[in-house]
Each structure stands twice: as structure tokens, then as C-alpha cells.
Amino acid sequence: MRVLSAGESALLIEVRDLAAVLALSAALRGEPIDGVVEVVPAARTVLLQCDLGVTSLAAVAQAVRRMQLSSQPSRSGDVVEIQATYDGPDINDVLVSTGLTRHELIRWHTGSDWQVAFCGFAPGFGYLVTENARSVPRRDTPRTSVPAGSIGLAGEFSGVYPRDSPGGWQLIGRTEMILFDLDADPPALLRPGVGVRFVDRT
């Protein structure tokens, strides 16, 4: 673990891999550090925004180094079921690159326990990971517009577009579920730590 300076009131904690990010952000949700007002996990790092009226960067750095990190993936407890229709425009490309049949692809995607590792790219866009990962390349040419609810794969991640936006993920399906609602509390269904299961409605 490396503790890096990110300005006068934030630290960037760099860890070995995404599994370590999941462990650290789960630990920070379970046992919040006094004065840490924002915890932003990403692929290899967790950014901690601190309230210097309550704590100091040195105290937060020390508390992070002392955290007991579990090697077991942990969840916030919430599991979201996403009703999916597997008729995405890139499904045939994904079958070619993975060597799976359509039935095997759907069985893999619906049969895996996914977890939101972090959000990024757009409000409410969760990067979903599974221990049962398969790697899928991004599209060579990103689409200028991907409809909200599109379910995609890229690298070892799966994700669901919360709003219409540009995007380069391979689209395998779609859902009618609302993933991001400004009037809801919390506004995003897919928050770091939340578990996800896809249910086939094709």
C-alpha cells in the first residue's frame, strides 16, 4: 500500500490490485475513519477526502495503514437483481471473442455473482466485477450514443448504462430498470460494494 498526497485535504491510497481496492473500500465502509468525508474507489486506488477541521492527513494515513483488510470479497449486504433481455447488438461479436455459445454466455452472465467495484465515467455507472471473470475487448469504434439500460462488457467488467451516453462497451443486452434517479435516495442503484445478479428475461 502506498499513501500519496492529493492536495492539502486528500490522500490517494494506491494498492496492489482491484481485489485490494474492494477490501480497502469495504473496510472503510465498515469502519469509517473520523473526518473522512468522501471515499472514492477506482481500479487501483481509493481517494480519501478529509475534513481538516476534524482530522489531519497524518492521522488518516496512520488509520489506513492500521486497517485490517480481509482477503475475502465483502459486500454491503445489498444485492440488486437486474432483469435483462439478452439481445444486444454486439452479442455475436462477444460470442466470437469468448468462444461461448449464446446459451453459455447468458448462463455465465446470469450465473455469476457480480459486485460494484467502483463508479465512474458517468453518474451511477458502476463497474461490475466477478471472480468468474472473462475478458472481452472494447469495441474498436465507440458508439456516439448508447441507450440507457444497455448492458455491456469491457475488459473484465460488466456494466449498465444509467443514462443515454456515448460508449465503447460491447452491448449484450438491456434492462428496463431505472439505475439512476435524481429523486431517489441514494440516487444510484449500483453503489460500490453492492452485489448484482442478472436475471434472464429474453
Binding site: V37, F118, G124, P187, A188
Partner: peptide, 9 residues
């Protein structure tokens, strides 16, 4: 709206 960066906001 601080405190929502983990949701991408």
C-alpha cells in the same frame, strides 16, 4: 453536493 463522488457525481 459533496459526498457523492463514489457514485460518479
Amino acid at each position: 453536493r459533496p459526498g457523492l463522488a463514489h457514485l460518479g457525481i
